[in-house]
Design a protein around this nucleic acid. Structure first.
Lengths: 112, 112
DNA sequence: GTAGTATATGAGTGAATACGTATATACTTG
DNA sequence: CAAGTATATACGTATTCACTCATATACTAC
């Protein structure tokens, strides 16, 4: 049960699609901004520095992938992380990156 | 140390790139085939059902991303998983997929 | 040297998609 | 009803990339 199973073609595409959703810096920025809790679109636009149209599109992508969930409140829509594995995934990748980057150093911004 | 850090632009692109490498069904198939241990290119071609040229390209991509490592032995080149976080990543995603797929069922291959 | 096998790469093509600009929808207020 | 605000979408463009076919490289054996 704990070890990775052999997946059929359809499952492989679903897994690949899942990774693809996380394969955009702007979407990672959105996810990062939502680690602290839910936020509305305007807040996310400001937090990420993107255009409203682009942020909205990325949010739809994340909703379709069930990474985020939304809650309407009057005119505003609040987004939040709905998949608990997302933070774990990011932790894993960031952790392994730290290891390989501390050798070369300078990739994270201490001073830049 | 354990919680996800805020990443700068360059780090975000590296993380995104990492996910992008895992966002292709054929590469996932290769990784899956290597869970049991190292394998040469011909073996991987047979295991995945891809063309030799295409498999070789994907292998170069995985090598460049430090997901795999290679070992030459005469004419043959043996590939293996070199990043221990890869199996964990796949486990995480597959686990969360199982949950959402067991409702629809049939995506995993019980036999084979 | 030549022939043969295993792996890598160059060139071309089609599909997917991130982004910007403009516009549409949804809701609130007067 | 009209006006204003928050969010979503349509369209066009540029880029990225997976794939195929053909060829190149690397090594072994004769």
């Amino acid at each position: 049960m704990a070890r990775p199973l052999p997946l059929n073609d359809q499952a492989l595409e679903i897994v690949a699609r899942r990774f693809a959703v996380l394969a955009e810096p702007m979407r990672l920025r959105l996810i990062q901004a939502l680690f602290d809790g839910e936020m509305n679109v305007t807040g996310l636009v400001e937090a990420t520095g993107g255009t409203q149209a682009n942020i909205s599109r990325h949010l739809q992508t994340l909703i379709a992938a069930h990474v985020l969930a939304r809650r309407k409140e009057g005119l505003q829509v609040f987004y939040r992380i709905s998949d608990p594995t997302i933070p774990k995934l990011c932790e894993l990748v960031c952790g392994s990156l730290e290891k390989s980057l501390t050798r070369q150093a300078g990739h994270f911004s201490p001073g830049r």
